[in-house]
Amino acid sequence: MPRNTQATKPTEKSAKARHGKVDVPPTKIADLWLGQHLRGLRKMHDLSLEQLAERCGLSVGALSQIERGITSPTMRSLRRLSEVFNVPMSQLFHEGDLPPVEELGRIVRAQGRRVLSLNTSGVQKELLTPAANGALEIYLVTISPGGSSGPELYTHKGEEGGYVMSGEMLLEIESREFHLKTGDSFRFKSQTPHRFANVTDEETVVVWTNVVG
């Protein structure tokens, strides 16, 4: 008697579940992507939800729902946010195919990094970690010749460390200065007054890690 192979054939739904794939409408994926993108920009600007709400005129609740992909922002809200973050409106729209929903909050593709260029200080920050809830943030920081975090020492919550991939960097922690070169690494409490600068004629690239807490 022939076997009933239909009963053992995996369904498309079970195959997707086994491989971690989830069917989500494209509009929902777009909202989730935009929410994480905006959260990444906010974190790179070191702004809390309350601070961002004050600057853009939106409520904390509305911003929270946008960042979590629960609601879609209006064009007016996007314009306000782009002005606060000092980025063109076009940067808030995804180019090309949207990432699979299972990658959101877990994977950052090279072409999908959030980039913040601080032209006045000669520093560019690329967020390498997903902009989901979490204490760990990893940045690729490029410091142009003469660029710095500013003339004043500053503090914030957490702990940070890094690795100088290329070039040289002056790292000032409290009253001590450390001249770091390619291959050197560092770690310190973020509550300790600090600043950094590139005092050479060549570009410096640092993998910088922040642990918020």
Rank of each mutant, 00 (worst) to 15 (best):
S117E: 00
R3W: 10
C56Y: 01
G167F: 01
I70A: 14
Q36K: 09
T74E: 08
G96V: 01
A17T: 06
P99A: 11
R187K: 14
S166R: 13
R39T: 05
L98W: 08
T209N: 11
I173R: 11
A15E: 13
T142V: 03
A62W: 05
W208P: 09
K21D: 08
N4A: 06
E67C: 05
E126P: 10
L92I: 03
K16T: 09
R80Q: 07
T209Q: 15
L52D: 02
D201Q: 14
G161E: 12
D184P: 02
V206P: 14
N119Y: 00
G35M: 08
A110P: 02
V206E: 15
E174L: 13
A17G: 02
S144K: 13
P2M: 08
K9W: 05
E83C: 00
N198F: 12
H194D: 10
Y154D: 04
P130L: 00
S48K: 10
K157Y: 04
P10T: 02
L118D: 08
T5F: 15
G57C: 02
W33H: 05
L78T: 06
T129A: 06
L116S: 05
G40R: 06
A53W: 05
L58M: 04
L78E: 00
E159G: 12
S185T: 07
I29K: 07
E172R: 11
P99F: 10
T142F: 04
E174N: 14
N86D: 15
F93C: 00
V212P: 04
P73H: 08
S90T: 12
G162V: 05
C56V: 00
F178H: 15
E12K: 14
G96K: 01
Y163D: 13
G161V: 12
I173H: 11
I70E: 11
K16L: 10
T155A: 03
C56A: 04
G57M: 04
G158F: 08
E174P: 06
R80V: 00
S90C: 09
G96S: 00
E67V: 06
L81T: 10
E172F: 01
S148L: 07
T11H: 06
P130K: 03
A62I: 09
T129G: 01
R195F: 09
V207L: 03
R114I: 10
D97F: 09
G96M: 05
T11L: 12
T204R: 09
G69R: 06
H45P: 04
N86S: 14
L78Q: 02
Q36S: 11
Y139T: 01
S64K: 05
E159F: 12
D97L: 12
E172V: 13
L171V: 07
E50A: 08
N210Y: 13
P193Q: 14
